[in-house]
Amino acid sequence: MSPPDPRKALEALASEHGLPILRFLRDRDWTLASQVSEALGIHTTTASKHLTAFYDAGFLARREHPARRPTHAYRLKSPVIRLEFDLAERVESSDAVALGAAFFEALMEALEHVGGARLTGDLVTRALGGGDWRPALGARLSAIDDPRAAFLSLIGDTRQSLANLVGHATADRLVRMAMERAAEGRADLVAAIGLPEAMP
């Protein structure tokens, strides 16, 4: 399902019938547009448009009316309604893998300067289970449906694995260095994936 369009929800809420409809639904179970229309004295089409907008915004649950198909019945999911807007761009799995590889490569290079092959080997073992880090990293990032969450989880786990080897202060410095390097030339992707939030 495509993410809810916040503009429709705001338009419906802003109209003179928006809040009365939601309040009407507050203490009721499954309700038809015609029942809303009758109770509030508005046209059935108006009631139906509002109910559809509130459903699309995620405020209402909907089911087909068993006796009068294709009519829908609605009810509130919760008596408390919160509006949240996710302004982040959608992140593709391939983008997360590319950024993750750039981050890990920069981290390995920095770590090589600090502690040589032993330290990089220890990190790969702890963070990705050992072996060749590239396929392991790709598999890990592709295994989670949400690429953004997968990337941020990789950063968090890598940071902790590194802290176990070199302490938190040094680990944070190294992760920050690697993030800065990985972010070069990828401003849009970095913003979409939320890299600044993950910066230690």
Binding site: H113, T170, M177
Partner: peptide, 29 residues
Amino acid sequence: IDLGAIRAGSSRDGVAVGLRDLEDFLRSC
């Protein structure tokens, strides 16, 4: 271990490593 490589490589860490950072490092090391 070359801890100097860290401050040389980061835009925000151009200062010397302090003793507390070193202690934190050594505990794990």
